[in-house]
């Protein structure tokens, strides 16, 4: 008998002790970013709050590990399986296996390419809505003529396309706001700074009223570029972004940035809601559930930073 089966057996015994309560297996991607860590913690805390036993598997960015974890969950006869997939493809066989064992599967965050019947539902952030919320803040705070420069995410990524679409949808209805420059900075801080520098050369820096970045990392790079050009980010050029990472809250607390729409890491509550509904016999569950985070401004930035940087 090898270690793996031994581990599986002991887990099986453990789970049998807790027959009465709900047991959920969760195959997480890993811990590659601060956002991911928050997401994992939220899943754990929300489970504890509801008295659900959560079996957590850190897959270290590898689909093979995720599939192995799911297979173990099936052997353990958990009540539900949650997967935050690393990649989109290759899920059909393991999802079939779960279905044969009558275990519902919920997909979180990233999408998968598989038959919709194979999983219960997918819960993910609404990127379009994030763009809309970011634009609404600008619309509410800027009545005058406003020339916006845009730092796009990686070309072709869902987050970049949808955030851009949402933002444009709102500002199209407001003639005073126009995007004058738009270029990709690939979601990274280095490129954000470099591209912002080029914007500041190509346009008259004093004529730019706001920066709209598809994520906080690019915005943080751009803030440095604005500072180095002698302007005040957050005042001369308003900074609008999405994600809500701790560094950005610090920048907002220091008055260098104005607003961010949080990429919602609180996926625990909607996930367990769905599971509990399903286990009670409710089958009327939509195949896609969208969540969006809140809008954060300088007003609460300092205290949010305290909360998030612990």
């Amino acid at each position: 008998m090898n270690i793996k089966t031994l581990a599986m057996m002991s887990l099986l015994l453990l789970s049998q002790n807790a027959m009465a309560e709900i047991v959920v297996g969760f195959a997480q991607v890993g811990s590659e970013s601060g956002w991911r860590t928050n997401f994992s913690n939220d899943m754990r805390e929300e489970a504890k709050r509801r008295g659900i036993t959560l079996k957590f598997a850190d897959s270290q960015q590898q689909q093979a590990n995720q599939i192995r974890a799911v297979r173990t969950f099936i052997a353990m006869r958990v009540d539900a399986i949650v997967i935050a997939p690393v990649v989109e493809t290759g899920w059909t066989p393991i999802l079939r296996q779960a279905q044969r064992s009558d275990i519902p599967v919920i997909i979180l965050d990233r999408n998968i390419r598989a038959d919709e019947d194979l999983y219960l539902t997918r819960i993910a952030s609404d990127f379009v809505e994030e763009g809309v919320k970011a634009a609404q803040w600008l619309v509410e705070n800027e009545q005058d003529e406003c020339r916006v420069v845009e730092l796009q995410g990686t070309v072709g990524s869902t987050a970049a396309i949808d955030r851009g679409t949402g933002f444009n949808r709102v500002i199209d209805k407001h003639d005073n706001i126009t995007i004058v420059r738009s270029q990709t900075a690939e979601f990274t801080r280095n490129r954000g700074k470099e591209v912002m520098e080029s914007f500041l050369r190509a346009e008259d820096p004093n004529s730019i009223c706001a920066l709209w970045a598809h994520n906080d990392e690019m915005a943080l790079g751009a803030i440095q570029a604005i500072k180095e050009s002698g302007l005040a980010p957050g005042e001369d050029i308003k900074v609008i972004s999405v994600d809500g990472i701790p560094d950005y809250f610090l920048a907002m607390a220091n008055g260098l940035a104005n607003v961010t729409v949080e990429l919602d890491p609180h996926l625990g509550a909607p996930t367990y809601d769905v599971i509990q509904r399903y286990l009670k016999g409710d089958t009327d569950i939509p195949k896609l559930i969208r969540t969006t985070g809140d809008v954060y401004t300088q007003a609460t930035a300092a205290e949010e930073y305290q909360k998030r940087s612990q």
Partner: peptide, 14 residues
Amino acid sequence: NTTIMVSGMPSKLN
């Protein structure tokens, strides 16, 4: 690279 950035061409053509 700089030409592409300052010329204002769509990112997908970069």
